[in-house]
Simulated assay, not measured.
Amino acid sequence: MSRAFLVVLDSVGCGGAPDAARFGDEGANTLLHIHEQVGLKMPNLMKLGLGAALGISTAETHGLHGVAREVSLGKDTPSGHWELAGVPVPWDWHYFPDTHPSFPPEISAMVAEFCETDGILGDCHASGTDIITQFGEEHLRTGKPICYTSADSVFQIAAHEETFGLDRLLQLCQHMAPILHGMNVGRVIARPFVGEDVASFKRTKNRHDYAMKVPSPTLLDWAKADGRATFGVGKISDIFSGRGVDESRKGFDDVLMGHLSDLVDEAPDGALVFANFVEFDSLYGHRRDPAGYAAHLEWFDEAIGPVLDKLRDGDLMLFTADHGNDPTWTGNDHTREQVPVVGAGVGAKDIGQVMFVDVAASVADHLGLTERGPGRSFL
């Protein structure tokens, strides 16, 4: 029985979204601009057809390749992943203004009351690493949580994993999540960090996303309904609020590659493995670091080679993305882009331009699932 591996390279967009101007992102192109500014050596994905999908190579390809467009009105993680799993977002997200303060006073008061402090720190748009540098030492002195947001529909809370307490931070986020979800804020994110001072602060792997529940069954649910084993690698379980995921494996990207490799060895016939590699976005896109982004892409390409070599006859492995985050662009937020779709296991095929929901329909088609969703299979 066939297996399917759907691998999301978080933020690895390829420009060309027809509504990019609406988001202030006309001309953004994550992969092309990295290639032009730094250069990219990605022989494994290029051989499958990544270069052809981007229009930067006419070399012979051996895999499925094309690009996908999103219809959900966002450029965020839940919108992209939900739609790739067959469920476009049926509402507009709530975004906090880029002002200081960013949050309604009643929200800040609820956080402070839970923490038994006389206020919060941050209360603004910020980079997660920058705001820890700015407020980390004050947080250690006062115990006040660091709350911040971005151009995405998120409410993020950073706190020291030891002095504030990881369990306490998770309880705080869990307490605030239904309140913020009621405002159509997509995610409440716990951002624990460690260190003694600004020189040693660093975020840990214990991030946890409390996402709004998906409004209808997704590819993961379709697979489970047909009795298939489902695995989430990275933050997939968080994005889908645990729904449809039998087993979740987490860690930093190098650890996640090991998990993906192990699942190629271990996943039973008929299984669905849904993976997200986040550090393209979190470490290099938001920080506007083209060289770092390029290096991580090249690391991924080299590491995925042996994994591809282990695929069984009948396996499908698709690589795609959820949005863009052009590191050469202005600001430090996601960019509205279409995304590449590159696949191994079904031979050479140019699928042209498809929709995000077609990815879910195609994976379901490959697995022979009963439900296919609103998309059309490109296999």
Rank of each mutant, 00 (worst) to 15 (best):
I157H: 00
I107E: 10
I56N: 03
D365P: 00
M42P: 00
D322S: 06
F164M: 05
D19L: 12
A190Q: 08
W93P: 12
A267R: 02
G24H: 01
D98M: 05
E83A: 02
V89K: 09
E113S: 15
V346N: 08
A291G: 14
H175Y: 14
D76H: 06
D221T: 12
A225K: 15
F5C: 02
N206P: 02
H175A: 14
A364M: 03
D365R: 11
H323Q: 10
W329Y: 08
A211G: 06
G244W: 03
D226E: 07
P43W: 02
I236K: 04
L220F: 04
S57N: 03
A159R: 00
D262T: 07
G27L: 08
D226C: 03
D269E: 14
P340W: 04
D19R: 13
A364W: 00
S108W: 10
R288V: 13
A126G: 06
Q37K: 15
F103L: 09
M1R: 13
P178R: 06
A225S: 14
S377Y: 02
F356M: 09
M1W: 10
I239Q: 09
A344V: 14
W299Q: 13
S248L: 06
F155M: 08
E162C: 05
P327A: 10
E302C: 13
Y210H: 10
D92I: 15
L369Y: 01
T77N: 03
S108M: 14
G55K: 07
L283G: 02
N325F: 11
E266L: 14
A177Q: 07
D269R: 13
D322K: 03
Q353R: 15
E113L: 12
L172Y: 04
M110N: 13
D226Q: 01
E26D: 14
I34H: 10
V87Y: 00
K75P: 05
G232L: 00
F378C: 01
G251E: 06
L9I: 14
T204Y: 01
P43S: 01
V233H: 00
H175N: 12
H33W: 04
D98R: 08
K144Q: 11
D333S: 12
H94K: 12
D265W: 08
V194S: 12
Q338V: 13
R187T: 10
K310M: 04
Y284L: 02
